[in-house]
């Protein structure tokens, strides 16, 4: 569990599916937490040979330029070691803020919600979701 109030935050990275990792972020993201997230994610990618990381930021309180920069760094680092990052949970307010701040998320893949991110992640890893009849 994340313990946001006392500043010590755990970063649980879950292996959602073969080759797909999920990191749900809650609370605030500062430099120390961003560094911890990056290190944990990189280690988990290497350990699992994951191809896609879904970074769900729906629970992040404030997304300003500093937070966006942290997210970009995490995306670049994971890209370098061989995994794609999908940032999900971008609310309309966050999207407007990012545009108004002039933040270019470059080649980062973004989705409005977790289900869209999962769909993309499954496409990337070669899985298809079918409804049973």
């Amino acid at each position: 569990m994340n313990n946001i109030t006392n500043g010590t935050t755990a970063t649980p990275v879950n292996e959602l599916w073969d080759g797909i990792l999920l990191l749900s972020v809650f609370g605030t993201i500062d430099s120390a937490r961003s560094k911890e997230m990056m290190e944990t994610m990189l280690a988990k990618v290497v350990q699992t040979s994951a191809k896609v990381i879904v970074l769900d930021i729906l629970g992040v309180a404030v997304v300003d330029s500093a937070v966006a920069n942290h997210l970009l760094k995490i995306g670049r680092a994971t890209k370098l070691i061989g995994a794609d990052t999908i940032i999900s949970g971008i609310s309309p307010e966050v999207a407007v803020t990012l545009v108004e701040l002039g933040i270019d998320l470059e080649a980062t893949i973004t989705t409005a919600n977790l289900s869209d991110a999962l769909q993309l992640a499954f496409d990337r890893t070669g899985y298809t979701i079918e409804q049973s009849k």
């Binding site: 280690a43 670049r76 070691i81």
Partner: peptide, 29 residues
């Protein structure tokens, strides 16, 4: 492929942007 974690972290801290290159964790991948 096979870029080490420490190298990736250091490059990102140096503001290196990989751009649209393709990467993989292993040679097989």
């Amino acid at each position: 492929c096979c870029i080490r974690e420490g190298v990736a972290t250091a490059l990102v801290e140096l503001d290196f942007k990989p751009g649209d290159v393709q990467t993989a964790t292993t040679v097989d991948q």
